[in-house]
């Protein structure tokens, strides 16, 4: 069984994407506070999803599917940035302590 070049590229991109999801999860478990964990989730997962999307777009049957995949990635980015901001803001309001920062009164 042989794989064509696009299939190999797709495989590599999807694997790379999976690696970033794994790294993001490692950050979620290992980082010391909620604020640092948000970095791990937003950045690593966005890149992971981006790579997986790119890999799948190469295999997509038509341009409608490619636009669909791009749109899903963009919507996920927008959702991640918004949710990250909301979680951080409510954590600050609740006074959740941050590592390396004097707990100060929020503006």
């Amino acid at each position: 069984m042989t794989a064509s070049l696009p299939e190999l590229v797709t495989g590599a991109l999807v694997l790379a994407g999976a690696f970033f999801f794994l790294a993001g999860t490692a950050g979620l478990l290992r980082f010391p506070d909620v604020y640092c964990r948000l970095h791990a989730l937003t950045k690593a997962d966005n890149l992971g999803l981006g790579l997986i999307s790119l890999g799948l777009a190469l295999q997509a049957p038509n341009w409608t599917s490619r636009v669909q995949i791009l749109l899903i990635w963009l919507l996920a980015l927008a959702a991640a940035a918004t949710i990250c901001h909301l979680l951080a803001r409510s954590s600050l309001r609740e006074g959740v302590p941050a590592v390396g920062v004097d707990t100060e009164v929020n503006p």
Partner: peptide, 24 residues
């Protein structure tokens, strides 16, 4: 920047000493 951001945080998350110096 997205690629750099992902690489940067993946490196810190997987690094044995977890190099972070967070602040606001």
């Amino acid at each position: 920047q997205s690629v750099r951001g992902g690489l940067d945080v993946a490196f810190r998350a997987l690094h044995p000493t977890r190099p972070l110096d967070p602040t606001f």
